[in-house]
């Protein structure tokens, strides 16, 4: 961490659950584990906007809800626009004395499809306008809610139901969209990456994102048990390997300055990460090396350590 930590260990997190039990997420769902911690970091004084996706579906089957905070799902592509309206309304209603003046965190919690694809324009617009809100992307690297279809966040080579593995084409042929870098190029005050395998790092980043003035963005890698074709008891292990291989580096960009928050002095080979997941089972050694070469290049530019 580049500065003081809000939480030194997970024991520092509030006991109170704001994303409560009873939701219908799969066992081992990386997203549900992350959101539970994220909500503890944000605290009760917030309004959460979620677009359509796994999180919305598993947490809100009417008349049940897992949300102990005000929560609003509107549609798929507009979490950032709805959050813009919420933030603007709070500002003006507090200015006019209709609402008591106090900081209410406006937070959008979205999936990768709702962020990097269909919600991209709305997010870019909201960032450019400088609304005071935090946008958290829970990236499980495909449209898991609709049945594991490929998104712009799906990594190279991955099998999905719309990037099938066949004789002519073997999984996704394009690379993953680098969303944190795109967001950072808007010049907003805070951008970070995180994952539930490093929960203390995650909660501190979320807390910083909601405390900072102006827009903030946290991109969280959240393994998906059915979509990544992994057993439900290794989702955290897989998330940790994503970091330790350099595939998903953990950093924050504050006022334009990038700092690695989890150092990886000896990067593991990407195959340790890929081999655990059924979605990569078809990859040849050659294809794996192609991925390794790209990760090496990116790791070097970020200042991660050499490969072990």
């Amino acid at each position: 961490m580049s500065e003081e930590k809000y939480f030194k260990t997970l024991k520092d997190l509030p006991k109170e659950e704001l994303f409560v039990q009873g939701h219908r997420a799969c066992s081992g769902c990386g997203e549900a584990i992350a959101v539970r911690h994220i909500m503890k970091a944000i605290g009760p004084n917030c309004i959460v906007i979620s677009p359509t996706g796994c999180l919305e579906v598993v947490s809100s089957p009417y008349p049940y809800t897992s949300w102990a905070v005000p929560w609003y799902h509107v549609a798929f592509e507009n979490a950032a626009s709805v959050a813009s309206g919420v933030e603007a309304a709070l500002k003006v209603l507090m200015r006019k004395g209709v609402l008591e003046k106090k900081k209410i965190h406006v937070v959008a919690i979205a999936g990768d499809g709702g962020t990097v694809d269909i919600g991209f324009q709305a997010l870019s617009g909201a960032l450019e306008r400088g609304h005071g809100f935090a946008y958290i992307c829970l990236d499980n690297e495909a449209y898991m809610n609709t049945g594991i279809q490929r998104s712009g966040a799906t990594p190279y080579g991955a099998w999905t139901t719309t990037s099938a593995v066949g004789k002519a084409i073997r999984g996704k042929v394009q690379w993953k969209k680098n969303m944190p870098a795109i967001v950072a190029s808007h010049g907003i005050p805070y951008v970070a990456t995180a994952c539930p395998a490093y929960p203390v790092d995650l909660v501190n980043k979320v807390k910083r994102a909601v405390e900072i003035e102006g827009p903030a963005y946290v991109h969280v890698l959240t393994p998906c048990v059915p979509g990544w074709r992994i057993p439900s008891n290794i989702s955290i292990k897989v998330a940790r390997l994503a970091v330790q291989t350099g595939i998903f580096p953990l950093y924050e960009i504050k006022d334009g300055k990038l700092t690695l928050t989890v150092k990886v002095p000896k990067r593991k080979h990407v195959k340790e990460y890929l081999k655990l997941q059924g979605r990569f089972a078809h990859l040849t050694d050659e294809e794996i090396e192609k991925i390794q070469e790209r990760v090496d290049r990116e790791s070097e530019s970020l200042g991660l350590g050499p490969r072990a």
Partner: peptide, 27 residues
């Protein structure tokens, strides 16, 4: 005395109104 949101599309115009109206603002 109003917040004027220069949204990037009409879809977002209505989305922002929806968010603001849900907070209690006249939109």
């Amino acid at each position: 005395d109003a917040e004027y949101i220069n949204v990037e599309s009409e879809h977002s115009a209505m989305s922002a109104c929806i968010g603001a109206s849900a907070v209690g603002a006249r939109c």
